[in-house]
């Protein structure tokens, strides 16, 4: 069953085409990674799915709903983790989570917040401290926790492992896999080839607003990192893949 459907999507920003008719779909319970260098159009794809950018041509839908038809309904079903999201520095982790969840009309107990913060491995003693004292990785963990706490069927993650240390990345990848196993659909954009290969069922390779390659299948077969790495450096023009 298709959760995210992108058909011949064209998007323009300031009159200039940034996506040139890309086409892919993500099935329910699948982890799909959009891989590409800077300016490839990864974040633009996510913003279009969320209804922040208008579709110039083609179509997008999430669970069969087009963002242009009912953006609120789309956003109710999607948890979004923006790239380098900075939550409020003058609030602590609990306060930030409480506030953002209240925007979604969700009220969770401290125990529920703790359980998720535990999942993203944020130290207990840091949770009550103002986030201005946090490292980049700790802030990212709270943002990930927020996305998880929204408890939505679809997660759109923009560079989710940015700022995380290798151990935390491993834990995050495991978390993503377990969410997929629960039936959540995850679309993440990244320029981390190895991370994407480790966690994603399928990978789409973006270059200059075009989808230049698709790897993997829904059959649970492991994606070959070397193949993707080679394609990434060749097809995206990247001198070396970021690991």
């Amino acid at each position: 069953m298709t959760a995210i459907d992108v058909k011949d999507l064209k998007v323009e920003r300031s009159g200039k085409a940034v996506l040139h008719g890309i086409r892919f779909s993500v099935q329910v319970g699948e982890v799909f990674a959009l891989l590409g260098g800077n300016g490839a159009g990864k974040s633009t794809t996510l913003l279009t799915l969320l209804g922040f950018l208008p579709v110039a041509a083609g179509s997008v839908s999430l669970n069969g709903i087009s963002p242009s038809a009912n953006v609120k309904k789309i956003r109710d079903q999607v948890a979004y983790l923006p790239e380098a999201a900075t939550l409020y520095p003058h609030l602590n982790a609990y306060e930030n989570l409480g506030y953002f969840l209240s925007l979604s009309k969700l009220k969770l107990s401290k125990a529920e917040l703790d359980a998720t913060l535990e999942k993203v491995d944020l130290q207990t003693d840091a949770r009550s401290q103002k986030m201005e004292t946090y490292s980049k990785g700790m802030r990212q963990k709270v943002s990930i926790a927020l996305a998880l706490l929204r408890d939505t069927p679809i997660l759109l993650l923009d560079e989710p492992t940015s700022g995380l240390d290798p151990v935390a990345i491993d834990e995050f990848n495991r978390l993503v896999r377990s969410l997929a196993a629960e039936g959540r659909t995850i679309l993440m954009v990244t320029h981390d080839v190895y991370g994407a290969c480790q966690v994603a069922d399928r990978i789409g390779l973006l270059r200059g607003g075009e989808l230049v390659g698709l790897f993997g299948s829904n059959e649970g077969q492991k994606i070959d990192t070397q193949t993707v790495h080679k394609a990434f450096t060749e097809r995206t023009g990247a001198k070396r893949a970021v690991s």
Partner: peptide, 10 residues
């Protein structure tokens, strides 16, 4: 960098 997060959450 919070604007889209707020819009999505709300």
């Amino acid at each position: 960098g919070r604007l889209n997060l707020i819009k999505t959450s709300a």
